[in-house]
Design a protein around this nucleic acid. Structure first.
Lengths: 95, 95
DNA sequence: TCATCCGTTAGATAGTTGTCGAACTATTAA
DNA sequence: TTAATAGTTCGACAACTATCTAACGGATGA
């Protein structure tokens, strides 16, 4: 069973914004579809997007807490943070 | 048990965007807190916002399908559409 | 050491949007 | 009919943001 820490108003704002862009939505979906991490280059194989733009979106997702980014040598290791996503779901359920 | 029709990509985009603005978030929360409908003027008692801006936000929420707006004489009767919100929750769960 | 690969940062631009005041429509009340 | 009330629409503006190219830094391999 996943953790569900309550979110601050700021976190809610950042998460909602991060999810609002279709591109970020796709990126997050792709990251979430992997059990273990994925690298930027692999995302770029499926999305026609420059490295710079991808980097920008990844920062938004990370700032929102929706993904974890770990540097592994040359590569970035991206993974979804389901606990945070679940907290957001729990928040929306209170409406 | 609430209905959960799957959403189109367009609906997902509109809903995510509608939820992304803090003001709209608050407005939706307020509408959702009422069992029966609420009018614009009552929302404006709690949020410092002009009628024009509120009208704009309500249109966004309605276009996204998150609220129902029924005109009743002079007043608008606003209510949350939990089926749509639940569909969005179901969508996010697939991540 | 040098070249190459992966990703980030900086700066610029085009498009989007939250906000307001003012003018408008529609309904109710006097 | 006149006035008041509830919302909407319009036009404008400031702030934000998604996107790109170009330049950069750090790691790997030759």
């Amino acid at each position: 069973m996943p953790e569900r820490e309550p979110l601050t108003a700021t976190q809610v704002r950042l998460i909602a914004k991060a999810l609002a862009d279709p591109r970020r939505n796709e990126i997050l979906k792709q990251i979430g579809s992997r059990k273990d991490g994925i690298a930027c280059a692999e995302i770029r194989e499926c999305q026609s997007i420059t490295a710079a733009t991808l980097s920008h979106h990844l920062r938004e997702l990370e700032t929102a807490g929706l993904i974890a980014v770990v540097r592994k040598g040359k590569f970035a290791d991206l993974s979804i943070r389901r606990d945070v996503l679940n907290s957001y779901l729990a928040y929306l359920k209170t409406f």
